[in-house]
């Protein structure tokens, strides 16, 4: 394996070039990371700072007073509970309906499957924002305005296209042969879906669940339009009403509330991202 001198030289120069390129890439990434981190640093430092203002600075001593001030029923617990009811029910509805819908689409052939899936895919990318004004007008007429169930139904419907699409793709990955055995034993479709297919696509169901929940938890416009009573508002709207409409804003408390409100979705994301190796499932799903 003795290499000629020239080639060995070129090898070392190439590897040193590779090292310098890696250092350049590291430096570039660090600059972007630092820039992106600034607003995140602000919210974390301010939430612990007794005299928080609008810029990133070292806190004047650490305190949990901001958290104590906001962890009260009317400011935090009621809105978070409302968010949980809205997003939990909406997600449950989305996951159940999309699992049921994905089953025939994945398992049985029909000439309607393709047009249906294309329509679904088309609907996934429609700007939901644009139909909120007519949805409001419609909800007023059918007395669904300012009701939790109306908002839940709309949340579920708006997430369903993507839910069905994801669920169908994950289901296609479960081999049919496993069910055929169950069919010959006389299991119904529903039984084989619940007992065989869904357990085998656990990560897929987790992705659909977490994705729907995170989308609803962060959604501002839908509850902003469809709910009117302050008692029913989820955190995404109440944060804005509570802090935006007061002359003197307590930035430390705003930051503390933001931390409390954001933590669940970040944890959920970390949960599925680790199970699926870096969140590429979503990238892959988007690619079809």
């Amino acid at each position: 394996m003795a290499l000629p001198v020239s080639s060995r030289f070129s090898l070392t120069s190439r590897s040193s070039r590779r090292t310098s390129r890696r250092l350049a890439a590291d430096a570039g990434l660090l600059v972007v990371a630092a820039t992106f981190a600034l607003p995140l640093l602000w919210v974390i430092l301010s939430s612990l700072d007794p005299h928080a203002d609008l810029k990133v600075k070292a806190p004047d001593g650490l305190t949990l007073d901001n958290f104590h001030a906001i962890l009260k029923p009317d400011i935090t617990f009621t809105p978070l509970l409302n968010s949980l009811i809205l997003c939990g029910s909406g997600t449950l509805l989305t996951v159940v309906c999309s699992a049921l819908a994905a089953y025939p689409l994945s398992r049985f052939q029909s000439r309607l499957n393709r047009p249906f899936l294309l329509t679904i895919l088309f609907a996934t990318s429609l700007p939901i924002t644009a139909i909120m004004v007519p949805v409001y007008a419609l909800f007023v007429q059918v007395n669904l305005i300012d009701t939790m169930q109306g908002t839940i139904f709309f949340f579920a419907a708006s997430q369903l296209p993507f839910g069905i699409w994801l669920m169908k793709n994950f289901m296609d990955g479960v081999p049919k042969e496993l069910e055929e055995a169950a069919w010959t034993d006389g299991a119904s479709s529903l039984q084989s879906l619940v007992r065989i297919v869904l357990p085998l696509m656990g990560p897929g169901v987790a992705v659909v669940t977490v994705f729907s929940f995170v989308m609803m938890w962060g959604n501002f416009f839908v509850p902003f339009m469809l709910l009117l009573t302050p008692d029913q508002m989820p955190a995404s709207v109440s944060i804005n009403e509570f802090f935006g409409n007061r002359g003197m804003v307590a930035y430390g408390q705003l930051a503390a509330f933001s931390v409390v409100y954001s933590t669940p979705v970040i944890l959920l994301y970390v949960l599925v991202a680790r199970r699926l190796g870096g969140g590429f499932a979503l990238g892959g799903a988007v690619k079809g």
Partner: peptide, 11 residues
């Protein structure tokens, strides 16, 4: 970068 993406819109 992903944290910025996962955060709720209002936050």
């Amino acid at each position: 970068v992903i944290t910025a993406w996962v955060l709720p819109e209002v936050v």
